[in-house]
Simulated scan of single mutants.
Amino acid sequence: MATVILVRHGRTTANASGLLAGRAAGVSLDQSGRDQAALTGDRLAAVPVVSVVSSPLERCRQTAQFILDRQAGCPHAPVTINFDAGLTECDYGQWQGRMLTDLATEDLWSVVQSQPSAVTFPGGESMAAMQARSVAAIRRNDAAFEAEHGPGAVWVAVSHGDIIKSILADAFGMHLDLFQRITVGPASVSIVRYGTSRPSVYATNTDAGDLSWLSNSDHSDDAPVGGGAGNTAPPAH
């Protein structure tokens, strides 16, 4: 089965100021976010990625470009970024453009924290719909890349914090109401492999570490009893 590397965009000017940017145009990476995205690109440079799929919003486009630039010269290196609206940010409706400190005084805030499956943002999207369309987008792309490139295919999806949290919750078999237990930092890497019987989560919210083992990993759908021997990086040439 194919492997998807879930990457959140790097830090933005809105993140740094505590503003809920949502789908607003013109929200770009700040210098810290560019540095984070560059580091993530460096981490992924050792992985032969077959495609980079991104949310169409600017901050994800910028992050995806750092990853794509560092794939140059790799076997099967993608030459363009594909955009998928299914990976775009949640539609926060009337919450978009407001400060988080202000939103925390709203009655809906506590529901977002404790029962997100019951939340529909005023004038926007429900969190259940957000999860459904983002998981569908990941599974659709994953199946297509495996069909085209085989079970060893590794691809990157660049998206947003709540989107990636909802995808990971689905992969863990967690109810959406538990997804706030998951943390996904700027430019972090999480790894999921979808098998015929269940997804396997290999990493969540990592911002350091060698990922070269992804080019030499076991494609078995079975979980190793006892935990197995771990991942092995390919031999140096």
Score class of each variant (00 low, 15 high):
A38P: 07
S220P: 05
S212C: 04
L19Q: 14
D102C: 05
Q71A: 08
D221H: 10
R140S: 14
A147K: 15
S17R: 15
V4R: 08
V119N: 01
Q65I: 06
R140M: 11
A153L: 13
A132D: 13
D69L: 14
I164M: 07
T120N: 00
G209S: 09
E58I: 01
V158F: 05
V4G: 10
V52G: 04
A229M: 10
G209T: 07
G173R: 04
H9M: 06
L176F: 00
F145Y: 14
A153P: 09
T40E: 06
G227L: 09
G173P: 05
V119S: 00
A77K: 08
R70P: 11
L100V: 10
D162W: 05
D102L: 07
Q36G: 09
A21F: 10
V52F: 02
N141Y: 02
G41F: 08
D218T: 14
A21G: 13
D84K: 07
V156M: 02
P199K: 02
I167C: 04
A208L: 06
G41T: 13
A223D: 08
D102Q: 13
D42P: 10
P151T: 15
G209V: 06
H219K: 14
A64E: 07
R198F: 06
V50S: 09
C90E: 04
S134C: 12
E148I: 09
G86V: 13
A132N: 12
S220Q: 07
S114E: 12
R11S: 13
D162H: 06
N216C: 12
S212G: 04
H160Q: 03
W155F: 15
L178K: 12
R23K: 15
Q36L: 06
M1F: 02
A24S: 15
Q96A: 15
P235L: 14
D91R: 09
S32A: 09
I163A: 12
D177C: 03
Q96S: 13
G10S: 10
H76S: 15
L29I: 09
R133G: 07
T120R: 13
G18T: 04
W213E: 03
E58N: 01
D170L: 01
P186I: 02
A72E: 14
D30Y: 04
A137I: 08
V135P: 13
Q94E: 12
H175I: 05
I167Y: 03
S55F: 01
S110A: 15
G195L: 01
